[in-house]
Design a protein around this nucleic acid. Sequence first.
DNA 1: GACTTTACTTGCAAATTGCAAGTATAAGAT
DNA 2: ATCTTATACTTGCAATTTGCAAGTAAAGTC
Lengths: 145, 145
Amino acid sequence: MEDVRHVLQLITRRFGFLNKNCCSVGGVDVSLIQSHILYEIDRQHHPSMQQIAETLGMDITTFSRQVQSLIRKKLVKKSPSDQDRRVYILELTTEGKFVAAAIEQQVQDYLTQIFFHMNEFEKETVIRSLKLLNASMEKTGVCCS
Amino acid sequence: MEDVRHVLQLITRRFGFLNKNCCSVGGVDVSLIQSHILYEIDRQHHPSMQQIAETLGMDITTFSRQVQSLIRKKLVKKSPSDQDRRVYILELTTEGKFVAAAIEQQVQDYLTQIFFHMNEFEKETVIRSLKLLNASMEKTGVCCS
DNA sequence: GACTTTACTTGCAAATTGCAAGTATAAGAT
DNA sequence: ATCTTATACTTGCAATTTGCAAGTAAAGTC
């Protein structure tokens, strides 16, 4: 139990490294945080700025500027909502989707490699455990909608 | 399998948030990265600068300055090695140990909370799974000695 | 003893941060 | 209807953090 922190720290670090290295696609470079933003915009259906900033636990002003940067790179599109014109709806451009997919592919390749060292039973156990852990973390409600 | 990335992303994020919030001890504030530095100096026995920077995957120059900052806060001590006077040996000061321990305590409390939602069997399975996952990640050798 | 490598630091310019203060729209109160 | 308050987002600014290039100083190599 004492070493759970350490193991989690290592897993987190390794997973973070992965993302860090995988953020250059074609001519475009995106930072780690930007890749997370792309990822979340892709996942959530036409989210607002707030939603993504909240999900990622970022300060909204920092987020605002990151989005500006992604718009400059033509990876993200921002349009005012019809229902409430204070809010802006985010979506990926075609190129944004392409970059997100390329990153996704690299992550999946890495995950495949990792699970390659396990047999089917281990693999399933690990995946189930991760989900359970995540669910437990959610219950304690430290963060992240 | 497709959602493993997402689950890992969430776990990572939640675990990162935890650390982010837990870095004010007594009068002293340390950033997330600094808390990781303290943690690793504590773990490794009289490590050099390189070693910690490498472990954390940080640029050595950035690391150098972070250490300077921790020394200013009197949490870390740096002394030239006897064997090789180019290298500096790092260790925590008494206060540094105190801060590291306080952070450790907060993390452990959080982990206890998380596992509180599981029965003994689940708990053991999850811990075993995390170790297995970490070992598999290590085999693919993306990072982190 | 001259060259190379290694461990670490500093200069600098760019990027990233958060707070305070701003604009603009929406919702609620009278 | 309008006055106030709340919400969604942006901008100014000053502080921090970053990485590269160039530095120092000590080992190691030939």
